[in-house]
Simulated assay, not measured.
Amino acid sequence: MKHTMNISILLPLCFVFLAVNCVYGDEEKFVTRQEFDKTITTLLKRIDHQQTVINALGKKLEKQSDIGTKTKRHAQTPLIAFSATLQSHQEHLGIHQKVLFDTVITNEGNGYNPHYGAFVAPVSGTYVFSATLLSHAGVSGNFELMKNGTVVYRMYMGGHGGGDYDTAGGSIILKLSQRDDVAIQAMDSVSNGQSVHGDLHSIFSGFLLAEAGEELVVG
């Protein structure tokens, strides 16, 4: 029977309960078998309800434990992040020449090489990159964010006439294998070469979101 164990436990308690509560005022009240059975049935229903609540809480705890495990695994992602800006102007850049962001602000994991002008992935994983470029006054420019020499997206700065400046930029999420490189380069060549304004106005950044084989957790 489903409630055999519950009844064996509850019977002594019920007898104690009935013995203590059999007197109301100065009058004795004798409980009939029907009333006794009804009391047992009510108690068993309460036990079933409590068991349902306990089961629901158990499932909730298991779910939270699972989320905690995934979050912990995600928290073990290696710290790889960089930000580098231009202190010196980049001028007279030829076609496909890299922009060398010469002032490194952050370089956790040593993935960015300011002399090579590229980020080289220390580990395989999902990365986030962003870039903002400022043109020289009255000078336009075409640049590209590259992955292993292949164009990912392009940026155009239209600093035309009147000494106007212009900015261009973007963000991208990329899956990289170890040793893949990401850089920004001049898209094409013009008579005087492409140029990017320095004085810390132009910046290139990136970071590892999750190492390969690691499950991303949101929320």
Rank of each mutant, 00 (worst) to 15 (best):
V196E: 05
A186R: 03
E211S: 13
I184Y: 05
V182T: 10
L208G: 01
D181G: 05
L200F: 13
S202D: 10
E211R: 04
S189T: 08
L200P: 00
S195P: 00
I184H: 07
E211V: 09
G206P: 01
S191R: 13
Q185K: 08
M187F: 15
G206A: 07
S177L: 14
S177F: 14
S202K: 11
G206K: 01
M187S: 15
A186N: 06
L208V: 03
A210I: 10
L208I: 06
A210C: 10
F204V: 08
H197N: 02
L200K: 09
H197S: 01
S177P: 08
D199G: 00
S177G: 11
G198V: 00
S191G: 10
L208Q: 06
F204P: 03
K175P: 12
Q194T: 01
D199C: 08
S177N: 15
H197D: 00
E211N: 01
V190H: 08
D180M: 09
Q178N: 14
V196N: 03
S191D: 06
S189I: 08
Q185S: 11
D188Y: 03
D180V: 10
V182F: 06
S189K: 11
G198K: 04
F204N: 01
V190M: 04
G198A: 02
I203A: 11
L200C: 07
A186C: 11
F207Y: 13
S189H: 12
A210Y: 13
